[in-house]
Amino acid sequence: MSPSVRHAPRVLWAGLRALLVLTLVTGVLYPLAVTGVAQAFFPGRADGSVVRADGRAVGSELIGQTWNGPDGEPDPHWFQPRPSNSGYDTGATGSGQLAAGDPTLVETVRQAREDVAAFNGVPVEDVPADAVTGSASAIDPHISPAYADLQVARVAARNGLPPAAVQDLVDARTEGRDLGILGGERVNVLLLNLDLRALAAG
């Protein structure tokens, strides 16, 4: 019998034992340690940055959601989020995966541009890219400042509020790139709509 065959069971046994020991260290002790520190110092973050209103949890600051009426269609009283491949279902994240030149996607974008323009009473040329493209996660919590600005007139009219006051809300919720250079400019839809609700309630 060759040495490698003779050694095989012993080496395999060592491999399995090494795996079990390292599982204990990196698969049990490590995640528990991180959880302990996270829950001690950043409990709100560690549990999902939950947003509360009226004394109850209404969502997460980080997770986008739908703003539909009882009919399941976008409710014009609210700022609307980006198109989502899953209807903002956190159980099915991911995008539609169509190529940038795909004919089906071209048709989807064309339709979305018309819908967004009609919904907001603006020309199609004014509709920004994020308003007609599906996000990567399908639960993108943000829209571009351009898409938020575009919705101001419609939201103000539907809620009987002065456009300037609604624009102030948008401006206050408009975030620049992080540290001035990282990522993209954005507006958090949930936080903006909660501000809107507070304003509308007087």
Partner: peptide, 25 residues
């Protein structure tokens, strides 16, 4: 963003997150 859908949309944001945008993606 030369793809036909991206050209129509006005940018290659399909499958990208707003908080990252084109550069960070």
């Amino acid at each position: 963003a030369p793809g036909a859908a991206s050209q129509l949309a006005g940018g290659g944001m399909e499958g990208k997150e707003q908080r990252f945008g084109v550069g960070a993606s």
